Computed example of a mutant assay.
Amino acid sequence: MSLSEKFIVLPFKKNRGNIVPGEMRQASSAASAEKIATAMSARHLGVAAYSIQVDEESGDMTSPKLIIAYGETADLTVN
Rank of each mutant, 00 (worst) to 15 (best):
I36Y: 03
M40W: 13
S2T: 12
Q53T: 07
N79Q: 09
V20G: 07
T73M: 06
P64Y: 05
A31F: 03
M1D: 08
A74L: 06
V20T: 09
V20F: 09
E56C: 11
I67A: 13
V47C: 02
P11T: 14
K35H: 12
R43L: 14
T73C: 09
F12R: 02
I67Q: 07
I8S: 14
G59H: 03
V78R: 04
S63N: 11
T38L: 15
D75P: 02
E23S: 07
F7P: 13
P21E: 00
S58T: 14
T62A: 15
V20M: 09
I19H: 03
S28A: 14
A48D: 08
G17P: 09
R43P: 01
S51F: 07
S41Q: 04
Y70I: 02
E57R: 06
F12T: 05
A30M: 10
E34S: 14
D75V: 12
V47H: 00
S32I: 05
A42E: 10
D60L: 07
E23R: 12
A49G: 06
N15P: 02
Y50N: 12
E5K: 06
A27D: 05
K35E: 14
L76R: 01
S58K: 10
A69L: 09
S41G: 02
G46K: 04
T77R: 14
S2Y: 00
A39Q: 10
I68G: 02
A48F: 07
L66F: 01
N18P: 00
T62N: 14
K14D: 02
G17C: 07
S28H: 13
I8W: 14
T77I: 14
A30S: 13
I19T: 08
L3A: 06
S2G: 03
A33M: 01
F7T: 14
D55S: 01
E56F: 04
V9L: 11
P11F: 15
P64M: 12
A42L: 12
I68S: 10
H44V: 11
T38H: 15
A42G: 02
Y50S: 12
E57I: 04
S51Q: 12
T73H: 04
S32G: 03
V78C: 09
G22P: 01
N15T: 13
D55H: 00
M40P: 11
A27P: 00
R43M: 10
A48G: 09
L10P: 10
G46H: 01
K65G: 10
I67D: 06
E57Y: 09
I8K: 12
K13M: 12
R43K: 11
R25V: 12
D60M: 07
A74S: 13
K13D: 01
K6Y: 09
P11E: 15
A39Y: 03
T73W: 00
F12W: 10
Q26P: 01
I68K: 08
T77W: 11
P64Q: 08
S4F: 15
A31C: 05
T38C: 14
A69W: 09
R25Q: 15
A42C: 03
